[in-house]
Design a protein around this nucleic acid. Sequence first.
DNA 1: ACAGTTTCCCGTAAATGC
DNA 2: TGCATTTACGGGAAACTG
Lengths: 443, 443
Amino acid sequence: LCLLTKLLANALVVEKQPVMSSLPHRPLVLKTGVRFTVTVRFLANLPEFKCLLKVKPVFDKDVEEATTVKGFRRFDINWADCKVLDVDTPDGGLVAEFGHMSLKERKTRAKGQNESRLGVTEELHIMKFVTGLQHAGLECDIEASSLPVVVISSTNQVLGAWASVMWCNVLSTSEPRNLLLFDDPPPLTWQQLSQVLSWQFLSVGQRELDKNQLSTLKDKIVDYPDDLVHWSKFSKNEGAWIWIDGILDLIKKHLVDLWRDGSIMGFVSRKKTQVLLQEKQSGTFLLRFSESNRDGAITFSWVEHTNGETHVHAVEPYTKQELSAISLPDIIYHYSLRAQRKMTRNPLLYLYPDIHKDTAFGRYYTETSAPKKVVDGYVNRRFASISDNPTPPPSPPREMDMTDMTDMDLDETMEKQYLIQELFSDLLSDLPELPDPWTSNQE
Amino acid sequence: LCLLTKLLANALVVEKQPVMSSLPHRPLVLKTGVRFTVTVRFLANLPEFKCLLKVKPVFDKDVEEATTVKGFRRFDINWADCKVLDVDTPDGGLVAEFGHMSLKERKTRAKGQNESRLGVTEELHIMKFVTGLQHAGLECDIEASSLPVVVISSTNQVLGAWASVMWCNVLSTSEPRNLLLFDDPPPLTWQQLSQVLSWQFLSVGQRELDKNQLSTLKDKIVDYPDDLVHWSKFSKNEGAWIWIDGILDLIKKHLVDLWRDGSIMGFVSRKKTQVLLQEKQSGTFLLRFSESNRDGAITFSWVEHTNGETHVHAVEPYTKQELSAISLPDIIYHYSLRAQRKMTRNPLLYLYPDIHKDTAFGRYYTETSAPKKVVDGYVNRRFASISDNPTPPPSPPREMDMTDMTDMDLDETMEKQYLIQELFSDLLSDLPELPDPWTSNQE
DNA sequence: ACAGTTTCCCGTAAATGC
DNA sequence: TGCATTTACGGGAAACTG
């Protein structure tokens, strides 16, 4: 009898349908008032039980003592009655689908009793589906339990909820079904955390993190002497997760293509960027995520060798808001440095290490190769991101005396040198000593 | 007795609180499932009735026959019980406030009965607040009625609802309380319609429509032989209202300042624009709303006199989406025409008739006058709207022979002329014959 | 006063109904 | 089938509540 009970206890299996549709399907997070669906399947293939098993969903069954002490919220499922296991057409298994379920918080006045209450996204709940079986004069209860569920009431809690789910998943082997896990959450090894983080990028951007990216992240996140990642540090307001999640969201909304292509180095320190780029030819650039912007932002850094000096510049990072108006490939294509004399040039030529930018991004440019000047009687237009030229122009010819010139004069004079060089290069012949970048603007 | 009844029938006054908060407070449109508040005030100042008058809200009281024939939807107010008129602290009047009310559609299966059903935003409903009075052995019922109410279920119906409300308001004197008004809606005179339209702009943008703007609108809207505006034409899918509402929304979201300042001429035909601008000096421009974009868009037109020819150009209109990333003043400030040789200039100088653009828009530019080149180690940047120069440059000096040149060659050669002129004007002295626009880029 | 939490509700998208 | 209307729910902000 005991054996049968145990056997059948594992016979009901719970499958959750996607719950929050616009997120990359993340189960185990439920929002109050939002409909979700659960399918219960009877694993033992016993068609003779057809229509005999009445299944009922129960939220947080048998967890009263354990969690009320900690002041966990209580929820009810908006689902009054039972459902009968019936035949699943394809394979004849017994199945019941609970559709249009939703959670509602049970208002209990006795809340503020506990000072050490966890955050709501640190509460773990479970949903059980129970049924009773009478067979051959024996009675036994069967129940199937969901994985731990985090219940939120607003999408602004998804961030924290997902951190909990990740932590939970990683620890699920060592800490089975401990709903008070976050009362004293164990730290993770970098090995454990890096794997789930990488999965996030795979899920959102169809590409995992590579060795270099993981190494940069490790340096940022695992700065403890014990070489572990601690929950409070990871999930707190200024912790790593909020920053990474902002980047995940940025990728999801604006950079899926580039991330999938591997065009975004992304996680590189400024110092490393400098080291990588200074070895490369002028016009080489790379894309990296802002380390300060908590909301996800991306910048590019490029190198210029001028006159024996090497400069690496980074543009002010682009935010989600801005990328929703202009795509990053278009920004790169149209990016211009503008000097005093209205001359412009694009300093971005080669995606690190040496891929021509049009090879990497050309297929994503909005503009067709031959723009019409006028559409419907309107003058065409495009948006471009423009910076003042941060690199001092190269030295002018020796015969010019500039000792009395102000910086401004100097700047202008140098640009005039360019103007003259350019004019003559076009009108007469190419001057071999024409500096590289000024011939690169391909519009 | 009869007199008393009539007197008291007007004694209850209904005041609706703002219902849809982000709209410019528009009562008379209620959305199902959204809370609203109604305050009922007893006009006759008779404190002895304190706590004797039990008021009850009723939706669509006594309108069964009239509107069910037309297949009007039925609604219930989520408000079970009565409320007692009590003393209003400031002036001692009797008041009851019905807060947290909402409407829910009563599902009736008998809907498709009528073929000629009106659109839901053409259904007019009323809410009544009723009470009974026993005084000196007499009994009489008192009720107060709201103005006609349009009930919607989604914000995508606000457009139609507001059209109905405007039509209703204008006709309220001649057609009192006719809930079937839109069964055969009377046309409006331009005089009537123009007034309510102008109020919309006052409400949204703090400035009414002027004579010229109204005149342009009249030409677009009143094209009937009878000089009237007909409901079906005004409110239908391609009618004038959807276009005007898009513009109102554009103003509300992005152009309140400029509209209030009167800097937006807005409603001017292309032809009129041409006539106005061609008389003005090069660089004069005006702002007008796109006539084709149903979603609200704005463009600028500018004039250039070159070589005896006059050109008026208009840029491709800017949409809400784009203006939420870059403000119109910034677009105007940074607008650039780019010629082949990477030279740029801004063709916008004077807001029609002759106001310098910085006078009109300077206070709204995002950028401060002295931009830093680098912030936090990042190169600064801005977004600019850029067009290819649509105006052919002026004739080159006579001694050059261009008979064999292709258009492209010609274009480039002319630009080189500019380059040379500009170079010399800077290096040596100002050439008096330098064309105006090319000296105007003030960045 | 305040921070964590929930509610509110627009605006878009999807689903539904006719 | 297509269109009209409703429902769904993310996202930002306000309201709540200890």
